[in-house]
């Protein structure tokens, strides 16, 4: 290949053109950049503004979900398999351990490291992305180096970071930041590059101050993609939080799972896996709720665009 590494089109940073039945696909940067393979699939996914009755109508779609859970419950009821204990036992243990039990501190520990790391990664990502956009020549010059660091699977850095920083909160937060900063940064850069030049010219013609320009043209213009990046960063941050706990820690959900696994307490391990799954989903859905507020205007505009 004669193509140099294209920092402009990195793999993780250009998250999928996605859509969703329940989730409006606001986080679709490719759509946002106007280079989407299709603009229409979201036509059936913009937020339904129907009454509560109309919303209930869609509930039938959950039948398969319910079926899966029921099947798991029924099929595992008499399970003697070591690896797949009855779901009933798992739920019971879940209650004992995580709701009334001691394991809550592990949950708090994980969430604390995640929150700090993710916040830093988000702020840094937007800031660096904006700087790379503002100073394009510097951006071009440093792009191979940034690209290389970006491509190294962050997990590979973990042992080295443990060697440097030891075991503890700073190490975990560093890992989360190092892994999660990229999608936000690259999406910010892409989003700002994708702003219609006419809008920037308009800002100049209107004699907007740089601050006003950033606030009323640059940030809103790039926001759909910044949010997409933040969403991607979120899932990576959760994963790295767990990985750091799995490899070098004495607390957290990851440590809880690992410890249960080493004691061969499979039912307990399952509770950890389920808590982790629930935490991951809860954080994602929380993010989507925030995104809907932040990008309300964008979803509305898209819906109108698709009707016309």
């Amino acid at each position: 290949m004669t193509t140099p590494p294209r920092f402009e089109a990195p793999s993780l940073a250009r998250p999928e053109p996605t859509g969703s039945a329940d989730v409006p696909s606001t986080s679709d940067p490719v759509v946002a950049a106007g280079t989407t393979p299709s603009q229409q699939f979201t036509a059936r996914s913009p937020r339904r503004r129907g009454g509560p009755l109309q919303r209930l109508k869609g509930l039938w779609r959950l039948w398969f979900f319910a079926l899966v859970l029921v099947l798991w419950w029924v099929l595992s009821a008499d399970s003697t398999s070591t690896f797949f204990p009855p779901l009933q036992n798992i739920v019971q243990r879940l209650w004992e351990t995580w709701v009334v039990g001691e394991a809550r501190s592990d949950l708090y520990s994980s969430l604390r490291h995640f929150a700090i790391g993710y916040t830093i990664a988000g702020v840094l990502g937007v800031a660096i992305g904006a700087l790379l956009w503002k100073f394009q020549r510097v951006g071009h010059a440093v792009s191979p180096v940034l690209y290389f660091v970006y491509v190294i699977p962050t997990a590979a850095l973990l042992p080295a970071i443990v060697a440097i920083m030891g075991i503890g909160s700073p190490m975990k937060i560093t890992i989360v930041v190092l892994a999660a900063v990229w999608p936000t940064m690259l999406n910010t850069l892409d989003g700002m590059r994708g702003i219609d030049p006419i809008k920037l010219d308009t800002a100049k013609v209107l004699h907007m101050s740089p601050l006003t320009t950033v606030r009323s043209v640059v940030l809103p213009g790039a926001m759909p993609q910044i949010m997409a990046g933040l969403r991607h960063s979120l899932s990576i941050a959760v994963i790295m939080m767990v990985v750091s706990e799995l490899i070098a820690s004495t607390e957290g959900i990851g440590f809880f799972i690992l410890e249960a696994q080493q004691r061969f307490a499979i039912t307990t391990m399952w509770t950890g896996i389920i808590v982790l799954a629930l935490v991951g989903s809860a954080l994602t859905f929380l993010f989507i709720a925030v995104e809907r507020v932040v990008l309300g205007w964008y979803i509305g505009a898209r819906a109108v665009e698709q009707k016309g």
Binding site: F83, I239, L246, L258, G272, L276, A277, G280, S281
Partner: peptide
């Protein structure tokens, strides 16, 4: 999709 894949690793 929202479940961190890593959750399945210990299993």
């Amino acid at each position: 999709k929202t479940v961190p894949v890593i959750a399945i690793l210990p299993l």
